[in-house]
Simulated assay, not measured.
Amino acid sequence: MKKTGLFFGSFNPIHIGHLILANYILENSDMEEVWFVVSPQNPFKEKKSLLKDHHRLDMVQLALKNYPKMRASNVEFSLPQPSYTIDTLTYLHEKFPEHLFALIMGEDNLESLAKWKNADTLIRNHQIIVYPRNFEGEKKDHEYLQHDHISLINAPVVELSATEIRNMIKAGKNVRPMLPPEVFDYLDGSSFYK
């Protein structure tokens, strides 16, 4: 069984913070691969700032091309909307039985985990790797962190956000150091986020 971490996100756009985190997990856990699962646009929400699915997937593929243990996944593009993590995991288990999937999530998501669809099943059947985040609200020793399947890793907290990057692009500011070079080139000269 190949241990594979699933990093879900809109990646709008993917930035170096995502790569730093995925690389840290690969180097400091038993994960053998990290898959970046690009979340599709919710058809019920109008999000003007969200690039079309295929553009975000293209950028993730470009960003990962020099990282053999990381790969882009468009698995949620063909699943019913809205996507629920538990349904995606069930589908991936059936399609890739040789992989043992773990979930990668930010510490801020622990607060809402109990509200996720089939949260108990999710926690019982999957390893969850939690990375630290600075977030509004009280940081506390979360009860979930006592669970055998949930572990907090000591990854660096990268204070980079895709929202901030989009705002900087819109304002005509230089975002080159924040993006993988291939992603910068993809966006440079386009009208994306402007």
Rank of each mutant, 00 (worst) to 15 (best):
Y193E: 00
M105E: 09
I150L: 15
F8T: 11
L26D: 13
E94F: 10
M31T: 11
V38N: 02
D53W: 14
E32A: 05
V183M: 03
N28L: 03
V60E: 04
L122I: 09
N154H: 14
L100F: 10
E182F: 04
F7K: 07
F8A: 08
M1S: 14
V34H: 08
F11A: 06
I20A: 04
M31D: 12
L100C: 14
F135G: 01
A72W: 05
S83Y: 12
L64I: 05
E164R: 15
L179M: 07
P132L: 02
K2V: 09
S29F: 08
I25T: 06
Y131F: 13
F184I: 00
K65E: 14
N109C: 10
M1Y: 08
T4D: 07
E143V: 14
T85Q: 03
L64W: 15
M105H: 04
H99K: 13
S29V: 03
L57G: 04
K194H: 09
A114D: 06
H93M: 07
Y131Q: 06
R56G: 05
N125R: 10
N154A: 10
L19G: 04
A155K: 09
D148V: 11
V34M: 11
I16L: 11
P181V: 10
V157L: 08
V38G: 02
L160V: 11
F184Q: 00
D108P: 04
I165E: 01
M178A: 06
Q81G: 09
L21I: 11
S73Y: 07
D58V: 09
A102Q: 07
L113N: 08
M168G: 00
R56V: 10
H93K: 09
E76R: 06
A63N: 05
T163K: 09
